[in-house]
Design a protein around this nucleic acid. Sequence first.
RNA 1: GGGCCUGUAGCUCAACGGUUAGAGCAGAGCGCUCAUAACGCUUUGGUUGGGGGUUCAAAUCCCUCCAGGCCUACCA
Length: 572
Amino acid sequence: MARILITSAIPYINGIKHLGNLIGSQLPADLYARYLRGRGNEVMFLCATDEHGTPAELAAAKAGQPVAEYCARMYEVQSDIAQRFGLSFDHFGRSSSTQNHHLTQHFAGRLADAGLIREVTEKQVYSNADRRFLPDRYIEGTCPNCGYERARGDQCENCTKQLDPTDLIEPRSAISGSTDLEVRETKHLYLRQSAMSDQLDKWIDSKTDWPVLTTSIAKKWLHDGDGLQDRGITRDLDWGIPVRKGDEDWPGMEGKVFYVWFDAPIEYIACAAEWAEANGKSDADWQRWWRTDKGADDVRYVQFMGKDNVPFHTLSFPATILGSGEPWKMVDHLKSFNYLNYDGGQFSTSQGRGVFMDQALEILPADYWRWWLLSHAPESSDSEFTWENFQQSVNKDLADVLGNFVSRITKFCRSKFGEEVPEGGAYGEQEEALIADLTTRVRAYERHMEAMEVRKSAQELRAIWVAGNEYLQSAAPWATFKTDPEKAAAQVRLGLNLIRLYAVLSAPFIPFASARMLEAMGVSDTTWPEDVAASLSMLAPGHSFAVPEVLFAKITDEQREDWETRFAGTRD
RNA sequence: GGGCCUGUAGCUCAACGGUUAGAGCAGAGCGCUCAUAACGCUUUGGUUGGGGGUUCAAAUCCCUCCAGGCCUACCA
């Protein structure tokens, strides 16, 4: 069986993520991981919290907590929600881990040795009141172009003109509002990405099966204007990974930390090391996933992310890895997603607009969200969440098509044969036709899942559910029973077996409901139906089962209206 | 300003340059009565954003215009 390494873009520590973040990387990555495990592959699925940077420091200050405590607390919150959404990470790590500290410093040291780091002294705005350097967008002022009073130091939101912080009229700190700003000199390390441009370009060119969205963004950065620019990888912050050259001090860089975008992707690797430590494994156990000289040469590595993360994954991180000169595993396939919009606008963490992961679980079980989000995943373009669409899709697909199927067959069996798989009769022509149809569909489902075609996979799965209802309608065991109880028994037996089949096939999408279906049918065998016919004879006559409670309750109009109102404004 | 993406039925989306542009939902009709007023069958909806061009053939390729979105390197 194959070995697949899967990483999801790591969510920022600053607050609870919304549904747009979830469908942008973690959820499709989980779908893929669950599917591959279901097929018997060896999977390492990693994710973590991204904890460094200015927003984390500010959020901690706002919460009145030291930043380390704040991050530790938010890590627990995010970890708990991820678990309740069924995100099946093999490890959910932290970019602030000691493992990541060591690896990040290690990579910086290797890059420096390879001559790929240069020191740059530059001028940056310092706020005396805030006692920190301010990133461009944390400086506000009046736009010299249009007169808008809340223009940011990088761009004016009103007239879209690109700005430099020093262009602003009456600049002030966006954090405190203080106008006590000064320009100070500060020294930083730059990664010489320009020196690796050709190497990266060739590497991108070799990835012919990547989506246009992915390669076009990378190509743009490589070839636009002066080509790939060197990038600052350090910051003047308190919270972060101290700048060190491997195990040694870095003269002149005391008190500085690595830029969050330098250390965050390295956490993908460090996370595996955290996994090893948490599970009592050795270094060799995680290195066989990440070092091609230590067993990772047969690993297929797939990354999932939102489109805004593409440049970092196609250029910066590969530059870091390649530049180290060490045989680290490079990404093989990169699946990026567009954005999910909320009711005509964007989901927004900063504005509290939309539905957040914790709120979602307060009103409905995870499977409802998983199904809707995955079956509407923003693959080819941005997509939109509306409550009406959500209600209709979920009610029809989950309650009517799948849930009702389980209900009708189990209840019919109970009333005519009792709560065990009925004996007698044999599968005939009609059953063979169903098996042939399902075989075709299951193979198509597998192809779509392999290709990470999320929406198409969902469509095919739904068609597989529908096939069960079609069969019952034409076989009509309730009519057959009156004239030929033996034949009806065989029909019901097939129907009950379909429930187990559906549970196995559906588990990547709706793991919780899938588990309930298996529990009701009294089986724990989740073997993938390589042979559909054999799979549909697994539950033998006499096997007892229980009629499950309503698998998916429908969303009522009252609920929908209530939620529409409740989530119309902004959070908090 | 530059780059990229998107525009197909009321809604969400399909469609290697190749029969008459297809599915699901919603709407209409019929059937069934095991089931969560569920299921099945049939069916009404499209000048593929506008205009021009290439081609035996265009939703698909080219040009142009319109509308929306994303990115543009110090937010992450």
